[in-house]
Write a protein that binds this DNA or RNA. Structure first.
Lengths: 214, 214
DNA sequence: CGCTTATGGATACTGATACTATCCATACCA
DNA sequence: TGGTATGGATAGTATCAGTATCCATAAGCG
């Protein structure tokens, strides 16, 4: 198919497709002549994947590129591909807390990891976020939220087990490529899914509880 | 205190504080003379709140303003304040799915809400996200993830109950203002917290399972 | 065959966002 | 009393995610 059809089917404007091609998010079409290329189903699928990450999961275009390069690699382990995806969806946050608040939060975060038997790299992107968030909540005197961390972690473990189960026992497809794509989509779009479910649950509970009170 | 001290304690540059003042995120200091103002502990606290929302939760500045205006309102119900916060952290997403995929996803989303007894407004910001995400996952042939939606929702309910408990039975403070702030922080920073915990759990499980395989 | 439309590739432009930088008249501080 | 800080206003900057324009060529139609 040509670019106009790709655009029509996907709903993505032609200039935007050209932009993704320029940025290397989308591999070039197969050239049939110097200024004519044909795009395949794989391009359509890739384009849809890009839009899901950009529009739904709000992943910056440059990070989407990183994720896709990981997906396309055939030397990288699945664990490393997941690491790339994690780095892509975790914004680099500067250290905003004071050093002693940060130290206390670090201790608490490490204790939490240890008590749940989670072993992660000390420079895991999410670890910094966790530490900074704990520090911020403490500084803002919201310690009660922090005290629920452990229960949060327990509930989160359930998610992750579900996800791993969903992905390692897939119904039909089983090529490593497809599994990798499932895992990455589960990681990234799963976030969007959980977030929206949480907000919906909150809205429902909140409506019952606080609609009339101040 | 003066602006230099506010900057020093908070770690936020003076020009940035001025920017927040201009944008109305931070109320003006009390003028002691035409070009001299003094800032209080309340300003420091508000500034920290702004930075937590902007830096940690990645809420756009314009949306932070919305949230704060909600917090400061004394006529708005807590439920409406939460609604503002939800709108602030849910990006307005254009409809990207085809209309029949969207229709199918809508049906499924509504069935999910019904089966969990969640009643939400039909224009709840998160509902659109949920629908679009389901539609995208189906289009990308990731139905197995969709089939776990129900278990996700069950796990999410636990979160929300925990959060409501954390907020409605606070240890010390109980003024409506403080409760509102706690709820909004729980809603927004809770998202950041859960997200980072999920990534950490994933990394740990992934390391054990997929470090060596492809 | 000729004419309109589409295409690939390159380059330039745009609008939004979140700051930074400068200026200036005044005020505090040693 | 002179150097630094301040409030307020205005202007400038960097980044991001597209859009727009151009051009030479190619495809499709009559």
């Amino acid at each position: 198919m040509r670019i106009a059809e790709l655009s029509r089917i996907s709903g993505v404007p032609v200039p935007t497709i050209k932009y993704y091609l320029r940025e290397g998010l989308l591999p070039p079409g197969e050239l049939t002549s110097p200024n004519q290329a044909s795009y395949s189903e794989a391009h359509l699928r890739r384009l849809r994947l890009i839009r899901a990450l950009v529009d739904l999961a709000q992943v910056p275009v440059a990070q989407v590129k990183e994720v896709l390069e990981g997906l396309d690699s055939d030397t990288m382990s699945l664990h490393d591909k997941i690491g790339r995806a994690h780095r892509a969806i975790t914004p680099q946050r500067q250290l905003t807390s004071t050093s002693d608040a940060r130290e206390a939060a670090t201790t608490q975060a490490n204790a939490l990891l240890a008590s749940h038997g989670w072993s992660v790299e000390p420079d895991a992107p999410a670890l910094n976020t966790l530490i900074e968030t704990i520090a911020a909540l403490r500084t803002l005197q919201q310690d009660h939220l922090v005290s629920f961390l452990d229960s949060y972690a327990t509930a989160v473990e359930k998610f992750t087990e579900l996800e791993v189960a969903a992905v390692t026992s897939p119904p039909g497809h089983t090529t490593p490529d497809q599994i990798a794509e499932s895992v990455i989509l589960g990681t990234i779009l799963g976030e969007t899914l959980i977030s929206s479910l949480r907000l919906l649950a909150q809205e429902s509970i909140s409506a019952n509880r606080w609609r009339t009170t101040q």
